[in-house]
Design a protein around this nucleic acid. Structure first.
Lengths: 233, 233
DNA sequence: ATACATTATGTAAAATTTACGCATTGATAT
DNA sequence: ATATCAATGCGTAAATTTTACATAATGTAT
């Protein structure tokens, strides 16, 4: 055991930031998992995380974790919840602030860091047993993203800058875990006016080509500052 | 300065739990504030809070804070957000997990604890300058309760067990900061079927007496487990 | 008895949501 | 070339929900 160096007048719990990074590959909703190299829970799958540094903010810590794992940077991050069950880590009292992120899987190459045996995108419908209370953390994140997509256009973090309406619908269905009516989905998203149709169409598809759209960020900002409650699905 | 007793191999931030307790007095929405006795921010108003103990959960810590301040126990508590700006406390790195609670002001007598000069219910529309980043924490809580009341019957934590519909509407208007149509409010709440009308009416009011209602908790649980999304206002 | 303040109920019009039908498109097979 | 096929894009009627009010009922105070 290493020598203890940091001393305090009062008990201080250890604090980690764990990241739940959802990725969309055009078909299914995935989540980034690492396989632990060391004890506790060696060889088990877990959410990537790190102990917080002395002078970094919670969100900076989440960004550092992602940079370390797979050079992910500049991603959308949102604080999810703080897990503080006294027994959640067998080593010592560890409180974990969970951050949720949204990315396109194709944008990043996952490379296992020093503490990991492997790092992978795993389908949210097929999650292995996870270390610590990470199953519970992940479930909380899934509930959050399902609630969130109904009134915030988070899809755009998970889609390419240009996308077709059926592709966007595929994402909604993957997240919500249910199918939606094509025609009503289209109507609802378009009347919201947060999409801009582009002149281009899909190429080389064995059926009628769909138009590409892009997210109208300006329009979205306007709606948000006006406090308009979007109900996207 | 006291002698340091707690030692760790790695730097650990201090961790506090701060409580935003909303109270309803039948007219307006209040929040529980304390006036600090000691530095930093001596004499300033602040949210009640405490450093976490070694073996207590985050929520237990919130409960302990409330018990210490004013014998409040058994109240509805919900984790709000975790504030971790490295400079938010001038003494050392302190990360604060904020919990939000809902009570009826009449149920509790506020008695200042040892660390406080005063403790008071303050109207959310007239909040003084607050210590630390508590202004920001409070604003986050107000945003949360406004969002929450639209789809969860939180009113019942803030009302007496028996209440009239106009009284309930008064609460909704105090939280949302806007007036609502009497007739449509009644219709919406009643079609939701989470209220049970009682045979009793108000007594000794100088106008037509209103019927009392109570919250149908069973019915609410059923709706929740069926995953029904209530939209109350 | 009458005035008054407030509760309780109803209803028509407007807006939104839901459930589909059908024409269009463009690559692929015949 | 022409037909086939799978998927996109547009439209519409019915059902449901929301909104904006009008009016009757009740119990105390004058």
């Amino acid at each position: 055991m290493k020598k203890a160096i940091y001393t305090y007048q009062y008990p201080h719990p250890a604090l980690t930031v764990d990241c739940i990074i959802f990725g969309f590959d055009g078909q299914n909703l995935k989540v980034m998992l690492i396989q632990r190299k060391s004890e506790p829970f060696a060889k088990m799958w877990a959410l990537p995380g790190a102990f917080i540094d002395e002078a970094e903010s919670l969100e900076s810590c989440a960004e550092r974790v992602l940079m370390k794992e797979c050079n992910i940077s500049g991603v959308y991050l949102e604080q999810l919840f703080t897990f503080g069950n006294p027994a959640r880590d067998p080593r010592e009292r560890v409180i974990s602030v969970a951050y949720m992120g949204l990315v396109k899987t194709a944008d990043f190459e996952l490379i296992a860091g020093n503490d990991e045996l492997q790092i992978e995108w795993r389908d949210v419908k097929e999650i292995p047993d996870l270390a610590f209370d990470h199953q519970q953390i992940l479930q909380t994140a899934i509930d959050r993203i399902r609630g969130k997509i109904r009134y915030q256009p988070i899809g755009f973090e998970l889609m390419n800058p240009k996308f077709t309406l059926p592709q966007l619908q595929q994402l909604y269905e993957a997240i919500l875990g249910q199918s939606l009516d094509r025609r009503n989905f289209r109507k609802k998203l378009l009347t919201m006016q947060i999409l801009k149709q582009l002149p281009e169409k899909q190429q080389n598809v064995a059926h009628k080509a769909a138009f590409y759209y892009e997210f109208d960020k300006e329009r979205y900002e306007v709606l948000m500052t006006e406090g308009i409650y979007l109900e996207l699905v």
